[in-house]
């Protein structure tokens, strides 16, 4: 049985369902801002006081890390929705058992979950930009470009999360996900420029989707514009599209056995 193709109205009906559930958990939106805000305060300001000026960076350290933490906030918010939440719907709530017998196709379900997660990432991004503003870390109106940027970041990680979820056997496999997400968070130039790494290591770091996400958001937020931003956008689009295709294919096999 095929994935069944997309129909916008059917896809949106799933987004509507998720929106109704989100609406009841607004504290969860706030919660998704706690961790990035804490990192911004303790590393951005706390460690920032120890760091002083960073070579090759014009602004103070907290303003430099803020857009990168913004990228991780959008990433985590979107990723958690298509990993934790979707896995819980597959295993615990068995929501899809009720949805599959409706006219929705598996492609509708996959895209609907990704779109919902992108919104989630967008909320986190908007919330975090407000936090940045409160802390006086907006250095350029270019930060407004970070909002559409966060949509792309959300898309890449929502689709990636959904693809990963189709490979999970049980809840303990989430530890393995942490083993990928944590080093990516630590090494994707969130806290320091890529020039810290020896030359041979840089291409590896640059392959990380979070590195590309930070590229996409950081320079525009700091009021710097170059063509690298477009390359990052292209990378994230491609990454998300491939992940979504993979996720849809695998979900079809799992839901329509």
């Amino acid at each position: 049985m095929s994935a069944g193709g997309w129909a916008p109205r059917r896809t949106l009906s799933l987004v509507e369902r998720n929106a109704r559930i989100f609406r009841r958990s607004l504290t969860a939106v706030l919660a998704s801002l706690v961790e990035p805000t804490m990192y911004l305060l303790s590393v951005g300001f706390g460690v920032g006081a120890l760091v002083g000026r960073v070579a090759g960076v014009e602004v103070r350290y907290a303003a430099y890390v803020a857009p990168a933490i913004l990228a991780t906030a959008a990433m985590n918010a979107a990723f958690n929705q298509t990993s934790f939440a979707v896995f819980s719907r597959m295993r615990n709530e068995r929501s899809y058992d009720a949805i599959v017998p409706t006219p929705l196709s598996v492609a509708d379900i996959a895209l609907g979950e990704v779109i919902s997660a992108v919104f989630w990432g967008l909320f986190a991004a908007v919330g975090f930009v407000l936090v940045m503003a409160l802390l006086g870390l907006i250095v350029s109106p270019g930060v407004l470009l970070a909002i559409p940027g966060a949509l792309l970041v959300g898309f890449a990680f929502a689709a990636g999360g959904l693809a990963v979820t189709t490979y999970l056997r049980d809840w303990s496999d989430f530890q393995l996900i942490q083993l990928v997400m944590l080093p990516m968070f630590l090494f994707a130039t969130t806290f320091y420029p890529v020039s810290v790494y020896p030359g041979w290591l840089r291409p590896l770091v640059e392959l990380l989707p979070l590195y590309q996400s930070i590229q996409l958001l950081r320079e525009p937020s700091l009021g710097v514009f170059n063509w690298g931003v477009l390359a990052a956008a292209g990378y994230l689009m491609l990454f998300g599209a491939l992940a979504l295709a993979l996720a849809t294919r695998r979900l079809t096999r799992q839901l329509l056995a």
């Binding site: 369902r17 109704r20 559930i21 009841r24 958990s25 709530e93 068995r94 929501s95 899809y96 058992d97 009720a98 017998p101």
Partner: peptide, 15 residues
């Protein structure tokens, strides 16, 4: 054109 009642209700509990 059909309706399905799955064995374990699969309702949206939060709603």
């Amino acid at each position: 054109r059909i309706g399905v009642v799955p064995q374990d209700d699969c309702l949206d509990r939060e709603l």
